[in-house]
C-alpha cells in the first residue's frame, strides 16, 4: 500500500495549520522507541494522540547519543538492552499506522544506525511504514548530499535543528533544505537542561520566522504544562522529550521493567501539556 507516500509530507503541515487555526501551538511529544520494552512503548505511542499529542517524535535508540542528556541516553540503553533494533522501530510505526493514519510521525536519532541499515533501504522502509519526517542530529547541512537530499526525494520531510549558535550566515543555509517544520533548540546544551530566558527564545523564533514560511517549534527545557504555555506564546509548536522520558523512568520497578503505571504516567503528563498549549495564547 502506497497511500502514505503521497499523503505523508502534507500531514505535518496540515497539523500545524489546524493548530494555528485553533490559535494554539502544536504539541510535539518525544518518546524513545522500545523504552522500556517494545510492547509498552507501542502502547505509549498508540495512546499519545488520544492524550493530546499533535505530532509524535519517535527516538531511534543509539549507543552514543552525544547531543542528549542522561535521561534520553538511559532510555536508549533500556531499549537496546531488550535487543531493540531499527527494524523494531519501523515496525512500531507500521503498527501505529494501522490505527492512526492522521498523526504525523517523525523519527529522530543519529546517523550511524541508518547508515548501517543502508540509506536507501531505510528511506524505502520508513516511507512504507508511514513515517512523515526525520530529524538526524549529527547531519548538519554541510553533509546534505549524504542523506538529506535522498530523504527529500523519497518524500520525507527533513526537519532541521537551529540553535542559539546558528548565526546570520548559517541560518539561511540551515533552512535551505529544511522541510516540515523548524526545530529551534532553545539553548546551547543537551536535552534535559533548563531554559533561562523566555523572551530571548521568543526573539530567536521571530528571527527564524523572518527567514522561512515553515512553522517553528521550540524544544529543550520544556517540562510542565506551564512551561508549554510560556514557550507556546512565542512558537508554532512546543517539543517535549526529556520530561516524558523521566515520567516513564519514574514509573518503572526496581529492575527497570514497566509497571501498570508506566503508560498512564506518560499519557497523564501529555494531557497536562496539552492543556498547557491551549492556554498559550490566553
Amino acid at each position: 500500500m502506497n497511500s502514505h507516500e503521497k499523503s505523508a509530507p502534507s500531514r505535518i503541515a496540515r497539523h500545524f495549520e489546524a493548530c494555528a487555526n485553533e490559535d494554539r501551538p502544536a504539541l510535539v511529544t518525544f518518546i524513545t522507541a522500545g523504552d522500556p520494552d517494545l510492547a509498552t512503548s507501542q502502547a505509549i505511542m498508540d495512546g499519545l494522540p488520544g492524550a493530546g499529542a499533535d505530532l509524535i517524535e519517535l527516538g531511534m535508540p543509539f549507543s552514543d547519543p552525544m547531543a542528549d542528556g542522561v535521561a534520553i541516553q538511559l532510555a536508549g540503553q533500556r531499549a537496546l538492552a531488550t535487543g531493540h533494533t531499527m527494524k523494531a522501530t519501523l515496525q512500531m510505526v507500521r503498527r501505529f499506522r494501522e490505527k492512526d493514519t492522521d498523526t504525523p510521525v517523525i523519527l529522530m536519532g543519529y546517523y550511524n544506525p541508518i547508515l548501517s541499515y543502508g540509506n536507501d533501504a531505510f528511506l524505502a522502509d520508513a516511507v512504507a511504514a508511514g513515517v512523515d519526517g526525520l530529524i538526524i542530529v549529527d547531519l548538519p547541512f554541510e553533509e546534505d548530499a549524504e542523506f538529506c537530499l535522498p530523504a527529500l526525494k523519497a518524500g520525507l520531510s527533513f526537519i532541521r535543528l537551529t540553535t542559539p549558535t546558528t548565526d546570520d550566515v548559517r541560518l539561511p543555509l540551515v533552512l535551505k533544505n529544511a522541510s516540515g517544520f523548524v526545530y529551534y533548540v532553545s539553548m546551547t546544551g543537551i536535552t534535559g537542561a533548563a531554559i533561562s530566558d523566555y523572551d530571548v527564545v521568543g526573539q530567536a523564533v521571530k528571527r527564524i520566522k523572518a527567514e522561512t514560511d515553515l512553522p517553528v517549534a521550540v524544544g529543550f527545557g520544556i517540562k510542565t504544562g506551564d512551561d508549554a504555555t510560556r514557550i507556546g506564546k512565542h512558537a508554532d509548536g512546543v517539543v517535549v522529550g526529556t520530561a516524558l522520558v523521566n515520567a516513564l523512568a519514574q514509573s518503572l520497578d526496581a529492575e527497570g521493567r514497566a509497571t501498570d503505571a508506566t503508560a498512564p504516567a506518560v499519557h497523564d503528563l501529555v494531557r497536562s501539556l496539552a492543556q498547557g498549549v491551549r492556554r498559550a495564547r490566553d
Partner: peptide
Amino acid sequence: PEGRFGQFGGRFVAETLMPL
C-alpha cells in the same frame, strides 16, 4: 576543504557545534 580523506572524515556534529 570539507574535511574528507577519500570517503572518510567530514563534520558529522549537531548544529550547536558547527559554528564552533
